[in-house]
Nucleic acid binder design. Structure first.
Length: 509
RNA sequence: GCCGCCAUCGUCUAGGGGUUUAGGACAUCGCCCUCUCAAGGCGGAGAUCGGGGGUUCAAAUCCCCCUGGCGGCGCCA
């Protein structure tokens, strides 16, 4: 039995990691057929962390060989997502300045004949061949095989076509794809950093297509050629590629190339255990940006989805994360994405911002083009509010609904708050008294306002809450919110008085 | 259907033969703090380690089988 091993793996692993520090080269290779989703972002992150930790190189390669589905919009979304997350890459064609590196694009390489060269070589060496079968014919073969309970695959009928037969097929106007000749016996074995030894029977594989009729290389072929051209040392990618690996190893072998080290990270699932998709809520990284998640929270959360330290550490500063990350500690099992924990973590990072939150908020507002959401708001006042209330904010977008009542002219009164608080026995008296006394109140600041309210409670022999609560509802329309007296100070006397009066008229007369 | 991967609290996970009455985090519940809401502090509940067989003096940890979940089987990537 022929044993096809992933050549080069052992060779590479025998060198200690330390000796090879600067040789670590990894890549993130998304296809621009949609936005960057959570799973892709995590793959990018793990590659990036590994490169940074090892002092290696991280490259971004856009795999745009799907002529039908690749779009420029998707490329844009991927780049914006990468930038937002701070996942910068270290190489790229064109520019000299690292900040301006473009990603690699496979279709550009295709135009330069990069893949054709190797395709021709394989054909010349008899390791690949042209196949003139139509997709329909191949489909027939698969069905026939399946009917006989055999592995559905291409039967290899074009393997040994003579020159004449080829000419004739071409005369018929048939377009050829290129297929790689595979052994039908033996196993393909490789060692994966995360999974350990993985084996596949070669009998499962057919002579798969490495170049389409259009001349464009297929995914499996382009990946291998590029990973070698770019001297990729470690292929870190999603688990869904595990069964592509034997195919790719056959390409490496056919071309006489060493294989890189493989690390297949587990999938991310939705709450119902199925593969994360749109119906599970937001999956696009940019949607998280727009909702006001902080990139550092996103990174931290994603890092923990499928990787952990021995101590189960939860919060990491970026440098700490780089220092501690390792592929060996990546989990083998799939992880369910938990939006709640992400929210918690985001709140954690927002609280860390403290007084720096206003700056972060306004920058986010501008970068996501949402300024109109606070049109008419007094920015300076909002800054003051945020500085006091930053710990209430879990997502930056919460700000819109949390503090809107400061700025609007018609406050919405929560019906429950009205019936529970304003209808209380003493509420009307408290509000009338407040309106009266506050009219000429000289020192409209939080401390004196608090003193005023407490004094009123003592004077009327009622609980402080019986004073505080109605005023809160009158002024904000709700039972939750910032410290009452800061709230009043921020609003100013006129607004407070106006709201107290209108509340009395509207609900208590 | 075939092939492959995986399997510890609801979720992310630690733990990889005895140190485990299985540890941490999110969520949840209770108490404290408190002008509300948060935040914070303290505490509780929550996993017989998917099931069954082995191996061993000893198994969550090693082996086998089963089951379940996920992934792949494209001129998609």
């Amino acid at each position: 039995m022929e044993q096809i091993n992933a050549k080069g793996y052992n060779e590479q692993m025998n060198n200690s990691t330390d000796e090879r520090l600067s040789d670590v080269r990894v890549r993130f290779a998304p296809s621009p057929t949609g936005y960057l989703h959570i799973g892709g972002a995590r793959t990018a992150l793990y590659n990036w962390l590994f490169a940074r930790k090892m002092g290696g190189v991280f490259v971004l390669r856009i795999e745009d060989t799907d002529e039908a589905r690749s779009t420029d919009e998707s490329v844009g979304a991927i780049l914006e997502s990468m930038e937002w997350l701070g996942l910068d890459w270290d190489e790229g064609p064109g520019k000299q300045n690292p900040a301006e590196y473009e990603p690699y694009f496979q279709m550009k390489a295709k135009e330069q004949g990069v893949y054709d060269k190797y395709l021709q070589k394989l054909i010349a060496e008899g390791k690949a061949y042209k196949c003139y079968c139509t997709p329909e014919e191949v489909e027939e073969m698969r069905k026939a095989a399946q009917a006989q309970k055999k592995v559905p695959k291409y039967d290899g009928r074009c393997r040994e076509l003579t020159e004449e037969q080829r000419k004739q097929k071409e005369a018929e106007g048939r377009k050829a794809v290129i297929r790689l000749k595979l052994p039908q016996e033996g196993k393909t074995v490789f060692d994966d950093i995360i999974r350990g030894r993985v084996e596949f029977d070669n009998a499962m594989l057919d002579d798969f297509i490495i170049a389409k009729a259009s001349g464009v290389p297929t995914y499996n072929f382009a990946v291998v050629v590029d990973d070698v051209r770019m001297k990729i040392s470690h292929v870190v990618r999603g688990d869904d590629h595990l069964s592509n690996t034997p195919k790719q190893i056959h390409i490496y072998n056919a071309l006489g190339w060493k294989t890189p080290v493989f690390a297949h990270i587990s999938m991310i699932l939705g709450q119902d255990g199925s593969r994360l998709s749109k119906r599970h809520g937001h999956t696009s990284v940019l949607e998280y940006k727009n909702d006001g998640y902080l990139p550092e929270a996103m990174l931290n959360y994603l890092a923990l989805l499928g990787w952990s330290t021995e101590e189960s550490q939860q919060l990491f500063e970026l440098n700490n994360l780089i220092e501690k990350f390792s592929l060996e500690r990546c989990s083998k099992s799939a992880a369910v994405f938990d939006p709640q924990k992400l929210v918690w973590m985001n709140g954690e990072y927002i609280r860390q911002k403290g007084a720096g939150l206003p700056a972060v908020f306004f920058e986010w507002l501008a970068s996501t083009g949402q300024e109109e959401k606070i049109s008419g708001w007094d920015r300076q006042l909002l800054e003051k509010i945020l500085a006091v209330e930053f710990e209430k904010v879990k997502l930056l977008k919460d700000v819109f609904g949390l503090f809107d009542f400061f700025f609007t002219d018609n406050v919405e009164y929560n019906p429950e708050a009205v019936s529970k608080v304003l209808k209380a026995e003493t509420a009307k008296m408290v509000l009338l008294e407040s309106a009266e006394r506050l009219r000429n109140f000289s020192d409209f600041t939080a401390p004196s306002l608090e003193k005023f309210a407490r004094d009123l409670a003592v004077e009327k022999n009622i609980k402080t809450g019986q004073v505080f609560h109605p005023i809160r509802v009158a002024v904000s329309g709700r039972t939750t919110g910032p410290s009452l007296f800061h709230m009043m100070e921020f609003m100013g006397r006129d607004k407070v008085l106006a709201r107290v009066k209108s509340t009395i008229e509207k609900y208590l007369s």
